[in-house]
Design a protein around this nucleic acid. Structure first.
Lengths: 138, 138
DNA sequence: AACACAATGCAACAATGTTGCAAAATACTT
DNA sequence: AAGTATTTTGCAACATTGTTGCATTGTGTT
């Protein structure tokens, strides 16, 4: 990882609190995406549910993490490894979601192909979510 | 539309009920995807919330409609126009979601490009969701 | 150390989704 | 067409997920 937990928070003008440190650390340690429920489990009763919601929201706004669209109505979050800044996300990589274990991965090295749309549609972002089986479930 | 409401239900071995007829008709009339909330609004107090949930679930299982992944945690449903059968969906077209009005469209004629993944991932389905502004919001 | 400000926890609420079961509607049989 | 078996619906109750206001606590700054 390029920056430590504290550095990342400071760079984004966020005050350094226990919950932010701990939650950001979870993302940095994890090689897959995390849902709100995952964080709630892994942090035990340490933080309030509301705090986790608000922390995730703040991180998304600051461009520290991004949300991943899923078919199953779960909101997945993952670290932004590209140069995302406040209000501007640039995570144009492919996401993979395992049908068996539910784990969601960011495939940082697989880029999203350009797709031409019919007239009338103005493209802002393209999300690609591939589902199937991951290496642990084959 | 290729088949009528009743025909579609019969072809899928579903008994013909008011709620199924009405909800399927909503999808056939609509040129965009519908969320549970949309159906609840458009059908008024005619059906119970639970009935709508169960009907949507049944339609998905039968391959009549498919779910569309979204970034904003809303579950969108749209008619399957390809040859989907029970348990096997083949909706490999691109979806577009308007950031302004929230409307989700199936771009049936824009096909999903093949994407090569690293070893270890077994692909079942590829979903592409493009967001931006639709013709009504530009 | 003291102050201003921001973040947290709690409580209460709202929205969304699920389950069991009796009543009603549908499909099937004769 | 009427009766029966089966499926579907509506209701109630519950579970989960997400939101908001406000007092308390913690953080950053002087």
């Amino acid at each position: 990882m390029l920056f430590g937990v504290k550095e990342t928070l400071k760079r984004n003008q966020l005050s350094i609190t226990d919950s932010r440190k701990k939650i950001l650390e979870l993302f940095m340690r994890s090689n897959s995406a995390l849902a709100h429920a995952d964080i709630e489990k892994q942090s035990g009763t340490e933080f309030d549910r509301v705090t986790i919601y608000r922390t995730l929201q703040t991180f998304v706004e600051k461009g520290i993490i991004h949300t991943i669209p899923t078919t199953d109505n779960s909101v997945q979050y993952a670290l932004c490894k590209d140069a995302c800044t406040e209000g501007h996300h640039h995570d144009n990589h492919v996401h993979f979601m395992c049908d068996d274990c539910g784990t969601t991965y960011c495939l940082d090295h697989v880029t999203v192909p350009a797709i031409t749309l019919p007239k009338g549609f103005k493209v802002t972002q393209t999300d690609v979510v591939i589902s199937g089986k991951c290496m642990n479930c084959v």
